Simulated scan of single mutants.
Amino acid sequence: MDHGSAAPPAAGASAAAAAFNDADVMFAQMMVPHHRAAVEMAGLAATRASDAEVKSLAAGIKAAQQPEIDTMTGWLGAWGQPAPMPGMSVPAMSHGAMPGAMSDADMRTLTAARGAAFDKQFLTMMIAHHEGAVTMAQDEIKSGSNTDAQALAQRIVTDQQAEIATMKTILDRL
């Protein structure tokens, strides 16, 4: 189903922002809470990580993903679609749980960890989380129609695959 004429573009929005389909909406609605979880995980590193490279990587993840959350939330508003609110549960996916999602128990374990134990847990969880984001972004590239959303999805694939490689290298070193 194409929503290309469902909502006019927001003031100053590009013409491409007006053209979207269900895959674009699903991508933004799923990636916003997925990114929020990554930002939450990354925020823990400032006071819990002992490895300087882990702290730096986490700060970079937080700095990159918050603007992407803001961008996707803006798209959803321009498209007349609901944006997930902070703390909202993730919309159900037809094929199961959101890829790379961390359970409440995982987050409690990470929150309780300190030092080298935190570093290893953080990297292991963030690798899985990033792999999930890459899968979701690849779905958008394959099925979406909004050029801006597809460009962001491609950036997510490129950036997060590079971060996965870096995290694996750090994890091997620890």
Rank of each mutant, 00 (worst) to 15 (best):
Pro86Gly: 02
Ala92Met: 14
Ala113Thr: 04
Pro91Glu: 13
Met26Phe: 08
Asp119Thr: 08
Gly96Val: 09
Gly80Asp: 01
Pro99Asp: 10
Asp106Thr: 05
Arg108Ile: 12
Ala42Asp: 02
Asp70Gly: 09
Thr73Ser: 14
Leu44Asp: 05
Gly74Val: 02
Pro33Val: 06
Ala97Asn: 11
Ala7Pro: 00
Ala92Arg: 14
Arg36Leu: 14
Phe122Trp: 10
Val32His: 09
Ala17Lys: 00
Asp106Gly: 01
Ser89Glu: 14
Gly100Met: 06
Gly74Arg: 08
Met72Cys: 03
Val54Cys: 02
Leu110Glu: 00
Ala10Asp: 08
Gly100Thr: 04
His35Asp: 06
Val90His: 03
Lys120Val: 03
Ser94Glu: 15
Ile61Thr: 13
Thr73Ala: 15
Gly115His: 11
Val25Gln: 01
Leu123Cys: 09
Met102Phe: 04
Gly80Arg: 02
Gln121Tyr: 07
Lys120Tyr: 00
Ala17Thr: 02
Gln81Cys: 10
Pro99Met: 11
Ala13His: 06
Ala18Gly: 11
Leu123Asp: 07
Ala18His: 00
Thr71Lys: 13
Ala97Phe: 13
Ala64Ile: 09
Ala38Thr: 04
Arg108Thr: 14
Ala92Lys: 13
Met41Ser: 00
Val39Glu: 05
Ala63Lys: 13
Met30Glu: 00
Thr71Met: 15
Ala105Phe: 02
Ser56Lys: 15
Met30Arg: 03
Ser14Cys: 12
Ala97Trp: 08
Gly80Lys: 01
Ala78Cys: 10
Gly80Leu: 04
Met88Leu: 06
Gly87Asn: 12
Asp51Arg: 14
Ala11Met: 15
Ala7Ile: 00
Gly87Phe: 13
Thr109Met: 13
Ala97Ile: 06
Pro86Tyr: 08
Phe27Ile: 05
Ala92Asp: 10
Gly77Trp: 00
Met107His: 13
Arg36Ser: 12
Ser103His: 05
Ala64Ser: 11
Ala42His: 12
Arg36Pro: 02
Ala78Thr: 11
Ala83Leu: 09
Lys120Trp: 01
Asn21Gln: 02
Ala23Phe: 01
Ala59Pro: 03
Met72His: 02
Ala97Arg: 10
Ala11Glu: 15
Met102Thr: 07
Ala15Cys: 09
Trp79Asp: 02
Ala83Ser: 14
Gly60Pro: 05
Pro9Gln: 05
Phe27Ala: 04
Leu57Gly: 06
Ala28Cys: 12
Met88Arg: 07
